[in-house]
Structure formats: C-alpha cells, structure tokens
Design a protein around this nucleic acid. Structure first.
Length: 293
DNA sequence: AACAGATCCAACCGCGAAATA
DNA sequence: TTATTTCGCGGTTGGATCTGT
C-alpha cells in the first residue's frame, strides 16, 4: 500500500530561473503559502521540480532574505558557531536572520575558510594547522598539564576550565530542554590542576600562572573580583554558545543533540576546551576587533 | 582588446529521516 | 511492517563574472 508513483521528474526545467518563473512562484506562494512543494509546481504552472521550487524560494525569493555583504559581527558569529557546530549550515543560518544556509555555506567556502587557512587555522577544527597532526586523539585521559604544554590555552579558556573546576567539581555541563545545567557525572574527566587566573581576560597573552603567591588580602580580593568577572563572562558566552538551537524540530541536528544521553555535553573533554581556545584564537587574529584578516 | 585563470554563487545531486499508504 | 514519497540538509558543480597579464 505505497503511495502512487511520483512523476515529478518528468518534463521539468533545469538551470537558471527566469523572471517569469520567479514571479509565478512568488504569486503562488503569496496565495497558498509555503509548503506542499511536491504539488506546488503543478498548481503554480511551473515546469520545475518541487525541490527546485523550494530551493529557489528559500534561497532567493523569500522576502525576508538579507542581501549584501556579511558584516564583521556576522563573520564572527559564523566562525564561532562553526567552531561549535561544524558544517551545520541550517542551524548556523537560523542564528543569522535573513541569511540562508546556502549563502552561509558559500560564504564560508569562499571567504572565511580561506582567511582561516591563510592565518594558519584549520577551518574544520579551528585549531592551528601545524598542530593538527599531533592532536587528533586528545581524550579525557589526557592530563591537563600535557594539554596546556602542547596547546597553551588562552586565559579565557583557562578561566572557563577553572570556573568549572572550582564551581562545578564533578559536574559537567549538559544541554537539556534548551538550557544548560550541571548534572553529576560518573565518566572520568580531566585532572585539572589548580591554575589561578590573574590577568588577560581579552586573550591578548598566554596569561598562565601555576602557583598562588602567599596570600595577601588585596590580592585575594582582586582575584575574587576577577574570578567573578570571568564567571559572568563565561556564563554570558555560554549562553551564546549554548543557546544554539532554541527552536528544535523533530528532524534537526539540534534535537538530535538534545537526544544524546546525558544531554549535550560541553567542555567535558579536552576537545571542548580546544573549541574555547580556537574561538579565542580567532579573536586574537582580529575577529573581535575592527581589524580583519 | 583579448585571453586565461580565479572567484563567486545559484542550482543541482545524493542521501537520510520522517511521513504515509 | 514494509515500500514508497516527501522533505530538508550538506556537498558539489558549472556558468557567470571578475581580475590580472
């Protein structure tokens, strides 16, 4: 009892759309709305596949599509989201109003990718190209000191790890029901040594100190203040990073992520810390400032 | 002006998941 | 339960345009 055969492929045009075809599609959607792509061509009198109509509408004809060059803010957001999500263009597009997944994908492949490569950053891993060969198998068994030794983290990334170490011992960040929460875990995580952050919240230097000086009241207070600032910043960034996918639907990668047992686990492995590092690295290269690659 | 190579981007293709008969 | 269609996604292609010589 299957459906009747589809004859969509018969007698369909291919290639560039004409103005008449565009207008025909626009008029039809204005009257009948989006959806039912399969039956749309027949109803609209178009010799196109439903798939082609959908693509044309979503990527080109939709009235809310934003035209023109990408802004620096959009650049930065795309890189950040890509470092987190990979090639999930539709999800990334969902975070950039008016931009389509196809447009972002093209922009990534023609602009951002090249810029990252020219600056020695692998566009897939968001890590320095010359370090990729030796870091492909970082696991939770890697000691944090080994990791630091090989991949000096930005202070921001370190601060994030410290905060998790200090404030959420034996916790990991989970993504459930569109929110991050901390939930006890049993799986082994990194053995974080205590590393006090005392400088450089803007990723302008390596900023790592490994031993605390003999306590002095003023220093303590300053450190507490800085730590609080870092926590605020961290939570702020986390909100951005983890608010990805607030509109999950049944068949999206977002919903799949949420379906992973124990939720969407972030920063519980060395790789996750690398993500933080890579984002910071991009910033160091100018994405946060007014300078461009 | 003419040509070649590089770049851009709209459009196509194949695949997997969901829906449906 | 199974076979098939439909939909949406990411990867790729190829024609149009740009740039350098």
């Amino acid at each position: 009892m299957a459906r009747s055969p589809c004859c969509e492929k018969a007698h369909t045009n291919k290639g560039a759309w004409t103005k008449d075809e565009d207008q025909c599609l626009i008029d039809y959607i204005h009257v009948h709305g989006e959806g039912c792509w399969h039956s749309l061509p027949k109803g609209a009198g178009l010799l196109r596949s439903g798939k082609s109509c959908r693509m044309r509408w979503i990527n080109y004809l939709r009235p809310d599509i934003k035209r023109g060059n990408f802004t620096e803010e959009e650049d930065e957001l795309i890189i950040k989201l890509h470092s987190f999500l990979g090639n999930k263009w539709s999800i990334i597009a969902g975070r950039l109003p008016g931009r389509t997944d196809n447009e972002i994908k093209n922009y990534w492949n023609t602009h951002i990718k090249r810029k990252l490569i020219s600056h020695g950053i692998d566009p897939q891993t968001h890590r320095p190209l010359n370090e990729i060969a030796t870091t492909t198998t970082a696991t939770s068994t890697t000691s944090y000191l080994d990791f630091i030794k090989n991949y000096p983290l930005s202070s921001l990334a370190i601060a994030k790890i410290n905060l998790m170490k200090n404030n959420h011992t034996n916790n990991r960040y989970n993504y459930n029901n569109n929110n991050f929460s901390t939930t006890p875990i049993t799986a082994p995580t990194l053995n974080y040594p205590k590393i006090d952050l005392v400088e450089d919240v803007n990723c302008t230097s390596s900023g790592i100190t490994t031993e605390e000086e003999p306590p002095q009241q003023v220093q303590k207070q300053q450190q507490q203040q800085q730590q609080q600032q870092m926590q605020d910043m961290f939570e702020s960034e986390l909100n951005l990073e983890l608010s990805i996918g607030l509109r999950p639907s049944a068949n999206t990668a977002e919903s799949k992520l949420q379906q992973v047992p124990n939720g969407y686990q972030l920063f519980d492995t060395v790789q996750s810390a690398m993500v933080a590092q890579s984002v910071c690295l991009c910033r160091q290269l100018g994405y946060q400032s007014n300078t461009k690659y």
